[in-house]
Design a protein around this nucleic acid. Structure first.
Lengths: 224, 224
DNA sequence: ACCTGAACACCGTTCAAGT
DNA sequence: ACCTGAACACCGTTCAAGT
């Protein structure tokens, strides 16, 4: 009579779209998007692959659903906050979310079927800028620039072959063995004299660029 | 004895890594990355799939090679040009290249094995900034911000379900049939009162954001 | 040296059949 | 209503065999 939630019971619970999507996100987080097959996902849910098709119409539909689940994690700009505070917070939050779900940034931009969470997110961002006094054209500029930057940075970051400050050094030092300094002198200088110096952390670059863009729009807004 | 270069002769020419990669880029351009399989590529080259493995070690290696071929098309910053002119030109060129090869931006950021063209491209960009008077830290900031923006914008753009001004309107108007205005009022306003107005062209947003970022770095540079 | 046929271990998806 | 077994048309890749 005690409530049981161990793995066996979990497996016995009936499938639902929600449960399928959550398991898919989990699998993609753990093993990457290429390891996410309908068959392996079914396996993890203790079910046959074909059963999944009762809850998602196909793999594309499933990917769309996964994206929407991830976007739900992004902190929406709070209606009371000043536009700059709110935009900064949502950008940092989006960046965190993309770091938690490394497969998401690239997938998000290649899908063309935004779900409810995505539409609500976009709407909230636009609303925040408009309430902050942005005219229509400037709102479009800011939306486009910030979004491009946030996704672009997220993708850049996950393509780096390391996590954290420690690992950077190991990887870089291995890579620099036999590095053709004469061919790429500026790259060499950047890595050795800057990126490998103590205190440098690539992920700090995100907020630097973000603030630079926000500064730019603030300047344009007061000039209107 | 006349030189013949029709399809049949083309097919009979021996395979080479170069020829495989060029055909792969062509196929991805025409039919998208998901349609690029080793088997279909072999077909197009008039050969069996297994023959490709004499020229690329596997599909990953092939993807790396394709990226490098595409990066080669990006105009390198000219050593004589002032940093801002050169950075603007290379950003616009990169943006053009990603528009020509829609599959490339997302693929580029997910690969971790940069080839010669990619390393040379990065090196040239860094060199341009350094020669322009950028201190090391600011060079890293500018490189990171510009790259994130360029790739991010490229991905955003290709995910839009239309090409050109005409088609925007058709797609948008179809989409707005039954659009839940009350749920997403700001999105609705943006689409109807701005994006669908004559003269609006999404791809113009690229240069707006680019100039804003370049402005920001110019300001920081003179303040140094 | 370069290409191939057959095979292996995978995919997504359909459909008729089971409970 | 929900799940499954068998099947289909695909994948990338290996390997021994052909020229």
């Amino acid at each position: 009579m005690v409530e049981q939630t161990d793995a066996k019971d979990e497996r016995r619970r009936p499938l639902s779209r929600e449960r399928v999507l959550r398991a898919a996100v989990e699998l993609a987080d753990e093993r990457g998007l290429t390891a996410l097959s309908m068959r392996k996902l079914a396996d993890r849910l203790g079910v046959e692959a074909m059963s999944l098709y009762h809850h998602v119409s196909n793999k594309d539909d499933m990917l769309d659903g996964m994206i929407d689940l991830v976007v739900e994690e992004i902190e929406l700009p709070k209606p009371g906050d000043e536009w700059r505070t709110a935009m900064r917070a949502r950008a940092v939050s989006a960046h965190d979310v993309f770091a938690r779900h490394e497969w998401a940034a690239s997938l998000m931009e290649s899908r063309t079927n935004p779900g409810h969470a995505t539409l609500r997110y976009y709407d909230a961002v636009l609303g925040c800028l408009r309430r902050g006094g942005f005219p229509m054209a400037l709102t479009a500029h800011a939306f486009s620039a910030l979004d491009a930057y946030i996704y672009g940075f997220g993708m850049q970051e996950i393509s780096l072959p390391f996590d954290g400050e420690e690992e950077v050094k190991e990887v870089a030092e291995a890579l620099l063995e036999g590095f053709p300094v004469d061919l790429y002198p500026n790259l060499y200088e950047m890595i050795v004299d800057h990126a490998l110096q103590p205190g440098y952390n690539y992920s700090d670059e995100f907020e630097f660029g973000l603030d630079l863009i926000l500064d730019g729009f603030e300047r344009l807004l007061v000039a209107e």
